[in-house]
C-alpha cells in the first residue's frame, strides 16, 4: 500500500462561503439588503422585530425565520402583514443548531425579493454556532439581554466579534436585577473594539426607534461588510 500526502490548504467552510456569495449575488441583483440577526434563545429577537418592523417607513421588509422546528415566530411576524418564510432545520437539515448558506439558499425561491428592500434573517437561538456560518448577509447584528449576565461577551467572543451591532434588550428589567450595564458594555468593547451598541426594551419600546433607524439605514450601506 502506498500513501501520498496532498497539500490542500483550504478553509473547511469554503463550500459554505461559495454558496453565501451566490446568495449575496441574488440579493444584490434585486437590491435587497440583508441582516443576519442572532442571539441566545429567548433574548427577544422576534419580540424586537415585532416592535420595530411594522414602522420602517418606505423600507419594505421581509423576514426569514430560522428555527429547529415550529412556526410560532413566523406566525407572529405574519400577524403584522410582513412577508415571512419559515425555515426549519428539523426538515431535511438534521435539526442543525444554526442556519448555513445552503439552508438560506433553499428558502430564496419562497421569498419575493422584488417586493422587499430589506431582509431580516432571524437565525436560530444559539450563541455559538451561527457565528461560524455566513449566509449571504450584508451585516450581522446580535441581541444580548440583561437577564443573561455581563460576562457573556467573554464567554462567547466569537459571536460578539462577528457582529457590528450588539443590541442590549430587556433594559426595563434592570431595576429588578443585579446587572451592571457598564460592565457588559466594557466586556463587549474588550472582545469587539468599536462595536456599535444600543440599549432597548422591546417590551416598553425604549430605544426601539434607534434600532428601527439602524435597520432603515442598512440599505444605504451597500457592500459595507464583505
Amino acid at each position: 500500500m502506498h500513501r501520498t500526502k496532498i497539500k490542500v490548504a483550504e478553509d473547511a467552510l469554503d463550500a459554505n462561503q461559495t454558496i453565501a456569495r451566490a446568495n449575496r449575488d441574488d440579493f444584490d441583483r434585486e437590491g435587497v439588503r440583508v441582516v443576519n440577526l442572532m442571539s441566545a434563545p429567548g433574548a427577544g429577537k422576534t419580540t424586537l422585530l415585532e416592535a420595530s418592523l411594522s414602522d420602517l417607513g418606505d423600507v419594505r421588509v421581509g423576514v426569514l425565520e430560522g428555527d429547529v422546528q415550529g412556526s410560532m415566530d413566523a406566525d407572529r411576524i405574519a400577524g403584522l402583514h410582513i412577508p415571512v418564510v419559515q425555515l426549519n432545520t428539523h426538515n431535511g437539515f438534521g435539526g442543525e443548531c444554526h442556519l448555513d448558506a445552503n439552508m438560506v439558499r433553499s428558502a430564496i425561491p419562497d421569498l419575493d425579493l422584488s417586493a422587499i428592500d430589506l431582509l431580516v434573517i432571524e437565525n436560530i437561538g444559539n450563541l455559538v454556532c451561527p457565528a461560524e456560518f455566513r449566509v449571504g448577509e450584508d451585516v450581522r447584528a446580535m441581541i444580548t439581554s440583561v437577564t443573561e449576565g455581563e460576562d457573556k461577551p467573554l464567554k462567547y467572543p466569537l459571536m460578539f466579534r462577528a457582529c457590528e451591532l450588539v443590541v442590549v434588550n430587556k433594559v426595563d428589567l434592570l431595576p429588578h436585577l443585579d446587572f451592571d450595564v457598564d460592565r457588559l458594555l466594557a466586556n463587549i468593547e474588550t472582545v469587539n473594539p468599536g462595536a456599535q451598541t444600543m440599549l432597548v426594551s422591546a417590551k416598553t419600546g425604549e430605544g426601539v426607534a434607534e434600532f428601527r433607524d439602524w435597520l432603515s439605514g442598512v440599505p444605504s450601506r451597500a457592500g459595507a461588510v464583505a
Binding site: K7, T190, P193
Partner: peptide, 28 residues
Amino acid sequence: SFRCPTCNEPGKVLTGGELEVESIEISD
C-alpha cells in the same frame, strides 16, 4: 483585550482564526 495594550487601537487578527484542511494523506 482585542485593543492594543499600548495605544488602544483595535488589533488585526494575524493567527487564531484558522479552520483549514491543510493536507490529506491518500492511499492507493
